[in-house]
């Protein structure tokens, strides 16, 4: 078996030290193979963003190591492109300039004309050509995320990371963009990692789904293989027995874990021993009475 493109070895990540230490991820072991589409699903606050930031290199593990093609990740690099949840477009740049910032950085040796052609091709690919000269504030949420997708794809990353890329979008735009991302992905079959809180989205898009346990000290749950044929049809999926089965399994797993996590936290809190201050009985009361 070839070297996995990303490998987590006993990775734990915590923030703060001593009493304030909050462990977000605990003992994560994960291998991501070349060319696969992996989805990681989890509730909010289960450390999904931390997990993806460990892969980009924006964060370093507190314990263990994250390997990229067998080498330890020491910092971010454009070869591991990321689509941020909140788009992270630079508001003072137009769509073109936002994409150009990335392209100019990754292909500095290309002649200007080639770069421009490249930029325009990717803007076209996400159907934003009419908005090329618009600034982010003039774009809808979906258009912003398309720009962000174009920016990442234009740099031809080896590994495409998506941190809840469609989380802030409405259901219709979400569906459209899911299909578009899949279309672009299947054109060159790069490795992709999708972080999401939507199990359906995960099943629709990925080859493999791994749930992330909720709460503190999250670990990874059992993996679920999705062997549905590509290209997948969203409408047909809804009645597909395999889809339903996997979906129920994953949801059950997550819900059950969620319940367990809630039980764990169910301790009665000690209330502070305080008496309410009544008007007129405070320490300044004598002033009023005296006058």
């Amino acid at each position: 078996m070839s070297t996995p493109i990303i490998e987590f070895r006993n990775v734990s990540k915590w923030y703060g030290e001593g009493e304030n230490r909050t462990e977000v991820l605990s003992n994560i072991n994960l291998k991501i193979e070349e060319g696969e589409f992996l989805a990681i699903v989890g509730f909010t606050g289960s450390g999904k963003t931390t997990l993806v930031n460990l892969m980009t290199g924006l964060l370093e593990p507190s314990e263990g190591e994250v390997l990229y093609r067998g080498e330890r990740i020491t910092g971010p690099a454009p070869e591991r492109g990321i689509i941020f949840q909140n788009y992270s477009l630079l508001p003072w740049f137009t769509v073109y300039q936002n994409v150009a910032l990335a392209v100019d950085q990754v292909y500095p040796d290309w002649p200007a004309a080639k770069r421009e052609e490249h930029i325009r091709r990717f803007i076209e690919m996400v159907n934003l050509t009419p908005a090329t000269e618009k600034r982010p504030k003039e774009l809808s949420g979906g258009m912003k995320q398309r720009t962000s997708i174009a920016r990442v794809l234009a740099t031809d990353p080896d590994l495409l990371l998506m941190d809840e890329p469609l989380g802030a979008l409405d259901a219709l735009t979400r569906g459209n963009l899911q299909e578009e991302i899949l279309k672009i992905w299947s054109a060159n079959r790069r490795t992709a990692v999708l972080i999401t809180n939507d199990v359906d989205e995960g099943i629709f898009m990925a080859d493999r789904i791994i749930p992330l346990e909720p709460g503190e000290r999250s670990g990874l749950g059992p993996e679920y293989r999705i062997n549905l044929e590509r290209p997948r049809n969203k409408k047909a999926l809804n009645t597909d027995p395999d889809f339903k089965k996997v979906r129920t399994e994953i949801l059950n797993y997550l819900v059950q874990l969620g319940e367990a996590a809630k039980m764990e936290r169910d301790e009665s809190l000690a209330l502070p021993d305080l008496q309410p201050i009544q008007p007129g009985t405070s320490s300044f009361g004598w002033l009023r009475r005296a006058s």
């Binding site: 910092g75 971010p76 591991r80 492109g81 910032l101």
Partner: peptide, 25 residues
């Protein structure tokens, strides 16, 4: 921080980082 993260992921040089990300902001 989002803008800084973009600069980090793209590995922008210090000059580009200042003139294209930090100063406009």
């Amino acid at each position: 921080k989002d803008y800084i993260n973009v600069a980090k992921v793209l590995k922008l040089g210090i000059g580009k980082k200042i003139f294209k990300v930090i100063l406009p902001s």
